[in-house]
Design a protein around this nucleic acid. Sequence first.
DNA 1: TTGAATTGTCATCTC
DNA 2: CTGAGATGACAATTC
Length: 725
Amino acid sequence: MLSLKKYLTEGLIQFTILLSLMGVRVDLDSYLPSHLPPLHEIILGPTSAYTQTQFHSLRGTSDGYGVHPKSVDLDHFFTSRRLLNSVRALDRLQVPTTELDAWLVHREAEGSVSSAQTGSSRPADSPQELPGSENNLRDALVAEQGRGTEDLEELGATAQPGNSDLSKEDIDLIDILWRQDIDLGVGREDFLLHDKRNDELWESPQDDLQVDILEPALLVDGETGENVRHQDQAALSIEECLSLLDASYAFGSPAEFSDSAPSDLQDAERFPGPSTQTDELLSPFLPVMENPVDLEEQWQDLMSLMDMQVMDDNNSADTSLQSSLYPPLQPDVDLERMALPSCSRDQSDIFSSSLEPFVATDSPLPQFSSHNSSDVNSTFGLTNLTGILFSQHLNSTTNLTAPEVLPDPLGGILDEALLDEISLMDLALEEGFSQVQASQLREELDSDSGLSLDSHRSPASPSGSESSSSSSCSSSSSFSEEGAVGYSSDSEVVDQEDSDGAIGYQPEYSKFCRMSSQNPSHYQRLPFLEHIGHNHTYNMMPDEPEEQPVASRGSRRQSGFLDRQAGRDEQRARAMKIPFSNEKIINLPVEEFNELLTKYQLSEAQLCLVRDIRRRGKNKMAAQNCRKRKLDTILNLEQEVKRLNRERSARLREKGENIRSLQQMKQEVENLYQEVFSQLRDQHGRPYSSQRHALHYNSNGNIVLVPRGAEGQQGRRPEKKDQRK
DNA sequence: TTGAATTGTCATCTC
DNA sequence: CTGAGATGACAATTC
């Protein structure tokens, strides 16, 4: 991907920009393989959709702990990470650009949408924007602009004035912005691209419905006040939304967002509100943090697209995707729709209406239609991204659950070579994407009060949401792999455990705090969703209850450490699209485990991986138990040694006492001996000489006086007997 | 930077 | 024979 990106950036993009400046609209996306994400996403990276990945990866692999680059088995992961780091570097540079675009757009929206927009490459060739839509957008953006006024001022008159003169003014603005960002390393192309994107968004024909749809999106993004964001918002990743919802849900905070049950549609509707607040709170961070996250999100989306191909259709267990998703996001259906634009459209007019505008924004309408009708896959990525956000807002009302019905959006479209490359990237993204950033953000956020954290996470503010969301989401979403795991669980807010016994994740390891109740099976169908699911699940803490109370989220900050636990196997499982959690793989009894395997038609490689995971997981636990036992044994032995030492000391004391006692007794015997001996008299009445005689005890207990040197003969010659005392 | 401690994994053995 | 568990050994990672 890196090479691809470079290629596009240096070649096609510049050429496109040139053409666009000349007034010729060129849609590179149309020339790209349908399965690929929009060109601007590939190049610029920063779309909210990628933020999902960020969250996910952060969760799952937060801090990169989840992946062990050194692992021989994960060489490809290691490589992916390197590439990913390069991508990140690029992404950071682009951050400022994004914001600037957004501000500019807002201003212009007031005057004339088309001109205001970016003025860039495309001179309003697109179908005329509806005035109403402009107004709506403008209104929506008002909140955003509040924060961005400073930036606007910096931009100076250029931003506002030239609405009418699109190309030239836009170019001027771009130049100004570009100069400002030069230090940051942002390429001018970036601006152009952003502008173009914006233009597309605005230019695309919009119905009233479309306008309405856009409005929410704009509002949401409006926090950051970035156009790009808005546009990206279309691509807003589910994870991001979820994380945002989760954050709001968990912390409650910022006013509107707080609390209520996630399931409500209102939650989705609330998005805008929180975003604005959060935006203010987050604004300081946003510029810096935002883009990286976006890039990651974009990558995530891209990866998800790739995943779809890779994904096996067999993944049966799509009981209800909705159920697996965050509760707060109620709009499970929306998510599905996002995944499957065509289907979603069919199902509900509302959805389709909402969806179309976004699709149109990113790509020319014709393109969209074609994709939509015939080739779902081609537009899938875009539509998904676009649809996600809106679906939540608009579609939340209806729960459409027909996962099984949904076709594989990308089936077989991807070029294999490209797919391989993308797959690699996907791995990298999922594993360690922006973990460093996430950790940084997390630190910042951690310093802040919990409320602030939540606010950061609010869905509304693109930049804020991204930066904060990346961190918060990662923390909250449990992506960590084992994300939240080990972790006290951030994510869990929403955890809905699968009602399905088979599918539902069950927290296993105490290590992994985070557990999302999301049902992995759903993700099988929806690759990008799958990331989310995996993240949440894998990051779970084993011992943690599946559903964590909202209050428990406070511990998220600590979860990062636990996230490390998300092991390589988690990564592997995700890479291989294993439809169930490692927890289950490891902890289920043999019978249930086999039953689980039978439920899913897994490839040989997947089966092998699952068994390896089970083996390693069990061995890991066994090793832990073994070490624990060993440690206990050592401690017991230590105690035993101490006890024995004490006993030894006691025995020594006893021995000493006995010796002393013996000495005393000997002394007494000696004294008695002397006394007895001194009283003995011979035949002449003279005492015996102790020199020549001695008293001796016979074996029979008698005491006899024997001459010295003849004690051995005493028995034979007893001179005196019965001298007992 | 070094070294100890921790942890994960593999190989092997036992039940 | 298979699976699970135990454990020594090694390597990776963290502190």
